[in-house]
């Protein structure tokens, strides 16, 4: 699949006199392969595996390439096991790449140099780093010591974040007494106290209710706006991605399927559009125009091939008494699901 150049790069080509923006994350033909033992079911096979282990190579990430520029918020999408977390771990220095290149802020992440680690942060929605039995405030204090944040800056940032997330009354409670959402907010405050330039957020809103998801989203967006930090976010909730990310990278079976604008994803992968219409004179048969998704009284919803949309729309307008008509793209979730299903069938 061809890589779509980001808007900035296109803009750059047209305006050669502008200084070249340096990508903050630079990934070229990056791969991570795992050797996993193959073991068949059954006692005899298990016994044989003790002596002679068979291995199989799993390509968790397979030659992916992309750039991320300063201040960009990029959604990293893909089904479970697509290679999202493996990629984030390589970007944050936890995993060594099998081959290919990674540069984050100009550093090779896996060397884990101090200057690099001081500028990044990693948040994992399903794992905690705050001490369970301590009030979050104590854990923040530990973060201050680890990052060597000067006292007054520490206080100022901490109080700023606490106010933004409305946590004033909770910071003195032991973390174990907080709700899942409150705990996640605390985790994020702790992870941002050193004011990182690059944020790797792996499912930061997993398991949270809608209100809590929205609060966290708003906060990340605000952090990005205030400090110009770059964010790479994986999430199963498309609402997160729609609210935060202009650009998405879709990964499946370790390969990039799509890299570009969120709206372009729909444009590219959805073969259908939905026409919603209200008729002036009650129900009529609409089968001749397209697939009727729903029809209730004078309201109806039709699914039509994308290329046919304008022709069908004008036919409807001339042949029927239409009170109101709108053409919409299908929900992003549906599009993504279609993409993954098609890929699964192809594989």
């Amino acid at each position: 699949m061809a890589k779509i150049p980001s808007l900035l790069v296109v803009f750059q080509r047209k305006n050669k006199h502008l200084p070249k923006p340096i990508p903050i994350i630079h990934v070229a033909r990056l791969s991570k392969h795992y050797q996993v033992p193959v073991r068949e079911a059954g006692l005899r096979q298990a016994a044989r595996a003790l002596i002679q282990r068979q291995h199989r190579t799993v390509k968790a990430v397979d030659e992916i390439s992309f750039f991320i520029h300063p201040g960009e918020v990029v959604g990293f999408l893909g089904p479970n096991g697509a290679g999202k977390t493996t990629t984030l771990k390589m970007l944050s220095g936890l995993l060594h790449p099998t081959s290919g290149q990674v540069r984050v802020l100009g550093y090779e992440p896996h060397r884990r140099q101090r200057a690099f680690l001081e500028q990044i942060t990693l948040v994992m929605g399903n794992r905690n780093q705050l001490a369970w039995d301590l009030p979050a405030l104590d854990s923040f204090e530990l973060q201050r010591a680890i990052y060597g944040i000067p006292e007054h800056e520490y206080r100022q940032r901490r109080d700023e974040f606490i106010a933004l997330l409305d946590l004033q009354d909770l910071v003195h409670k032991p973390v174990r007494n907080l709700s899942l959402g409150e705990r996640m907010k605390m985790e994020i405050v702790g992870a941002l106290l050193h004011r990182p330039q690059v944020l790797f957020l792996d499912e930061p809103t997993i398991g949270l209710d809608v209100t809590m998801q929205r609060r966290i989203r708003t906060f990340i967006s605000e952090y990005n706006r205030r400090y110009g930090a770059s964010v790479m976010l994986t999430s199963h909730y498309m609402a997160d991605v729609e609210a935060l990310c202009k650009r998405v990278i879709v990964i499946h079976h370790g390969r990039i399927l799509y890299d570009g604008d969120l709206s372009g994803l729909v444009e590219r992968f959805s073969a259908y559009k939905t026409i919603n219409l209200t008729l002036k004179n009650g129900p009529v048969s609409l089968e001749q125009y397209g697939e009727v998704v729903s029809q209730e009284g004078s309201n109806a919803s039709l699914r039509v091939p994308k290329s046919e949309t304008s022709r069908i729309t004008s036919r409807l307008l001339t042949e029927q008494a239409v009170a109101d008509l709108t053409v919409v793209d299908p929900p992003i979730e549906d599009v993504i699901e279609t993409v993954f299903n098609q890929q699964a069938e192809a594989a």
């Binding site: 944050s92 936890l94 884990r112 200057a115 680690l117 794992r127 905690n128 780093q129 680890i146 990052y147």
Partner: peptide, 18 residues
Amino acid sequence: QQGTLDFALTKPVDAQVI
């Protein structure tokens, strides 16, 4: 076991000390 060592390894301090 739980993979939370990731947090210690992404800190700008020698992880053995942490």
